[in-house]
Design a protein around this nucleic acid. Structure first.
Length: 518
RNA sequence: GGUCCGUUCGUCUAGGGGUUAGGACAGUAGAUUUUCAUUCUACCAACAGGGGUUCGAUUCCCCUACGGACUACCA
């Protein structure tokens, strides 16, 4: 019988989730939906020292903004609650003890100082890989080297201890990664990982395996940084006797910094001037304790669909030439097999391009909504929906972000404060001014105020004076908007209205009088 | 240092034993436009290197180089 596909996203609440994490969540989500399975979120907060207030909420909001829907999570519990490892704390010890009893794990009493000393000794002896392992554990203080009664005494006395996995000395550990194929690691390169910490909390490794098993996870899709510890996890499944239901692994390629080398880190955003976080994050500097702000895609004006589309293509592609995919289409097309092995570098140009595509594809009504919102924020409250829609339709081709709409729309609400000097000095003269004056005089009487009609009127006036349209257009634009460039002039005048347009022309005529005389 | 992973245009990538090595972003040029932008068209641009295997390798294998991850009582 086929098991229902169940995947998990397991972030630790140590700060804001960066886009690499979001992509991991996205791929999990796409895979789960594609396979008709479930996706859950589990908070991996077994390190109490690294807990950051607000991080969990940030993760939740980020995923919501992205449109990644969780079937089970700490805030929407399912059959395997609780979904925070700190709340699952009581259940881990029994599993660690199970391993101790079966001889696959042991108690270790070494202090941090002793561990440091051991590493220093091995490093000095030029041991290639200093670690607590099948060889070195014989020199350490643990239940393998100490007499049984002494171990009992230490435990009874409440001495601090950890439980370590007893990794075999010589054994090949292999697993079939869905993205990378067979990965083989020799057990001698794996150390005796701590399973239970002295504070009674499990480490990531133990908690992860126990929870994935209990939560019936079928596929573990996570970042490449976990690849080196995957063989250890395989060992754990084996020793627990859970090998037959061990999840399949898929290790995703890393996301690299746009410049230089190395994986994208939380600090790169501010350094490079683009967001690495989905949402803005207010944190505190680890060293100075000063409040910090890291920019987010949402606040920078990115549309969630565009952001997701872009992110999906960083390390995956459908094999077709199609670039634009809705979430539903992504789900339809997604497959782990098409995830690439090699890391991907971040491309700011492409995210912007995606955003433009998504912005322009939106219905004018929705764009008008964005526009109205920004206008209201700057005190411009008397704009009708109808007018906003006209303006949005006209300026959307010039916008990358919703906020650009309002910027481009300014000319409709503010008369020119100055006139582009280049155009004035080149195009403005007595003849042109005369034509504009004539146009301004006739304009208010126009009954048809469509762009086409205005253009016809203008043509008629200009040609009636023996001139060509091209001679006056730039001057007219400057007179009406003050700028040398902008959206279609006829459309601008139409939206502005004949009265306002005529007045603006007359104001310009007065202001630029000196040029006319010259 | 050790272990593991990776390497096709500047970037994201398709492809795969015989191809003009395809697309997208960026860049450049041209067309359209009253202007800028948009749009359209064209151009530029890549199989890391060396050995094999093969009639033939960018594709399969090995080595080298380069890049990266991991190497905690962090996840």
């Amino acid at each position: 019988m086929e098991r229902e596909v169940r995947v998990r996203f397991a972030p630790s609440p140590t700060g804001p989730l960066h886009i690499g994490g979001v992509r991991t969540a996205l791929y999990n989500y796409l895979f789960a939906r594609k396979m008709g399975g479930k996706m859950l979120l589990r908070i991996e907060d077994t390190d109490q020292n690294r807990f950051v207030p607000g991080a969990e909420d940030y993760i939740r909001q980020s995923l919501e903004w992205c449109g990644i829907v969780l079937d089970e999570s700490p805030w929407n519990e399912g059959p395997h609650a609780p979904y925070r490892q700190s709340e699952r704390k009581p259940m881990y010890m029994q599993y660690a003890l199970q391993l101790v009893e079966s001889g696959h794990a042991y108690y270790a009493f070494d202090t941090p100082e002793e561990l440091d000393a051991m590493r220093a000794r091995l490093t000095a002896a030029k041991v290639p890989n200093p670690q607590y392992n099948a060889i070195t554990r014989a020199q350490m203080r643990n239940s393998l080297t100490l007499p049984e009664d002494e171990v009992k005494q230490l435990l009874d006395a409440g001495t601090a201890y950890v439980i370590r996995l007893k990794v075999p000395r010589k054994e090949e550990v292999r697993f079939n990664d869905m993205i990378r194929g067979w990965v083989v690691v020799h057990s001698s390169s794996i150390d005796d990982k701590v399973l239970m910490k002295s504070d009674g909390m499990p480490t990531y490794h133990l908690a992860n395996i126990v929870d994935d098993h209990l939560m019936e996870i079928t596929h573990v899709i996570r970042g490449e940084e976990w690849l080196p510890s995957a063989p250890l996890h395989v060992l754990l499944y084996r020793y627990f006797g859970w090998e037959s239901t061990m999840p399949q692994f898929a290790h995703l390629p890393l996301l690299l910094k746009p410049d230089g080398t190395g994986k994208l880190s939380k600090r790169d955003g501010d350094r490079l001037g683009f967001p690495v976080f989905p949402l803005e994050w207010h944190g505190t500097d680890a060293e100075t304790g000063e409040p910090t702000v890291s920019s987010g895609y949402r606040e920078s004006g990115y549309l969630p669909d565009a952001f997701i589309n872009f992110l999906a293509f960083l390390g995956w592609n459908p094999g077709s030439q199609q670039e634009l995919f809705s979430m539903d289409e992504l789900i339809q097309e997604f497959s782990i097999e098409r995830v690439s092995k090699s890391p991907a570098r971040f491309d700011q140009n492409k995210v912007r391009w995606y955003n433009e595509q998504y912005l322009r594809a939106k219905p004018d009504g929705e764009l008008a909504g964005y526009l109205l919102e920004s206008l209201q924020a700057q005190g411009q409250t008397d704009v009708s929906t109808e007018k906003a829609e006209q303006i949005a339709a006209l300026v959307k081709e010039r916008a990358t972000f919703p906020a650009d709409l309002a910027r481009e729309a300014q000319l409709f609400f503010q008369r020119p404060g100055s006139y582009d000097e280049q155009v004035v000095s080149k195009k403005w003269n007595a003849q042109v001014a005369g034509a504009l004056a004539a146009f301004a005089q006739q304009l208010p009487a126009a009954t048809d105020t469509s762009p086409d009609a205005i253009k016809a009127l203008l043509t008629q006036v200009v040609e009636g004076l023996g001139m060509k349209l091209g001679q006056v257009l730039q001057a007219l634009r400057v007179a009406v908007t003050g700028a040398a460039a902008g959206p279609d002039l006829m459309a601008i005048m139409s939206i502005l209205g004949v009265q306002e347009t005529a007045e603006r022309i007359n104001v310009a005529l007065e202001q630029l009088n000196s040029y006319t005389a010259a």
